[in-house]
Design a protein around this nucleic acid. Structure first.
Lengths: 234, 234
DNA sequence: TCTTTTTTATGCTATTCAACATGTTTTTGT
DNA sequence: ACAAAAACATGTTGAATAGCATAAAAAAGA
């Protein structure tokens, strides 16, 4: 798990620059001494619901999902992480065990810091504390919005929203149309609160309507305006 | 809006004691000088989606709902406040306008503090900052859990959950069975992600099954164990 | 108090979506 | 390269729930 050749360290520290610049020089040194790098393979689990949260996570490269296992084997993806974003620390500050699990969509590299250290810094560094207040405050709004979207939108609208989100979050390939993330239909379903069957069906429908083009896991957005329209109305 | 006879002030300050005890004597004085009391009638709006958040709210008495207006006139209640709880400050720390609205279920009294002052205190008072980190971190988990409950549970399970929540949150009357809050069927539906028709129908079903007894807006829980069972499985 | 409006109740219908079945294609592991 | 497993595709069916209509009851206002 531990890996600290200077190139990796420099990369990690660079990824943490939002946080770094809020720290005193001594704190910056302490961070470097307590920073771990971990690699995860595709579909590998980073942490699981019920576990004790000890590490603050920063995604350096790759793509990660945060999800809740629900009723009857169903799963809801509640957050999707891109580099460089922070995650896996909420439960610690709420004095809870993890209430979500996290897994890698694809091969990913994560930088870990004992969150207890971060908390200690926050006791002395208000800028840092306010940074996390802001992060969490934004996350509450996102989660509430997701609740409404997932409960009130129809299936086509929910899928359209997920596709738009993936485009905006992870971007497009060089052709300016193909989603940079290759998700399974199941993951797409778990983002959009629907069964895998319906994700497949609805994707096919979108393809037939020339809104998207599908080639296995590759999804190309052809008519983005239409997708936005479906997201809004349906 | 402003009301500061000493009895009211004492009451308000007492309600804020969680926060008060984290403040320096000077800050406590400043709080008393910048504290407003406002009364709201039943169904009156405290704030609306889109407005600029300026005040930190503390509910002193009464009952308040926080909700989002969604698609096609539908509404989702995302939070339910009881005395003494804090609310209406999240948007400020996220640098957003309000993304929810708040209204009084019944006649309520609220204590208001300019949230800008609170933020200023947080810059100097880490205990206070960590207190709000904790509040927000808990709220994120609640919201994620709500997403899963509202999307994955069946209609009976969702209603059972709302009834249990109302019992646990607002308590029971002296008979040890009747919910202390008298909600309209519409509000109950808006908590439980269903139409008013279905809230009425499902309540009637519960009553016929002797799980509850209904007398207008009065709801008496007869078979709490059964309600828990329905919440869990259904 | 009387009228008007809102809320509650219940039945019927239409729609959405999940469940299941089956076959095909793709991926994975050896 | 091949077998086994997983993911994808598509059709059919049925259950869950929204939508609408109507009427009764309750609450709000004048």
């Amino acid at each position: 798990m531990r890996k600290k050749d200077s190139a990796v360290l420099t990369n990690a520290v660079n990824s943490l620059k939002d946080i770094m610049q809020m720290l005193t020089p001594e704190q910056q040194e302490e961070l470097k001494d307590n920073l771990y790098i971990q690699h995860f393979k595709k579909n590998e689990t980073l942490y699981r619901e019920g576990e004790v949260p000890e590490m603050f996570h920063c995604l350096i490269s790759g793509k990660v999902k945060v999800y809740k296992d629900g009723i009857g084997g169903r799963t809801q993806i509640v957050r999707v992480i891109k580099p460089v974003e922070y995650f896996g620390y909420r439960a610690y500050f709420a004095n809870q065990n993890y209430v979500t699990s996290a897994a890698a969509f694809e091969a990913s590299t994560v930088c870990l810091i004992p969150v207890e250290i971060l908390e200690r810094w926050m006791m002395k560094n208000n800028q840092l504390a306010l940074f996390f207040i802001r992060q969490l405050a934004i996350e509450v709004a996102r989660s509430d919005q997701r609740t409404v979207n997932l409960t009130q939108k129809h299936i086509r609208g929910r899928l359209a929203e997920s596709l738009i989100f993936l485009r905006d979050n992870y971007g497009l390939e060089e052709d300016g149309a193909t989603l940079s993330i290759y998700l399974s239909r199941e993951d797409l379903a778990n983002m959009s609160n629907m069964t895998t069957s319906n994700a497949i069906r609805t994707l096919s429908a979108f393809a037939q309507e020339k809104i998207i083009a599908i080639d296995g896991k590759k999804i190309k957005i052809i008519d983005g305006d239409n997708l936005e329209r479906i997201n809004k109305i349906g």
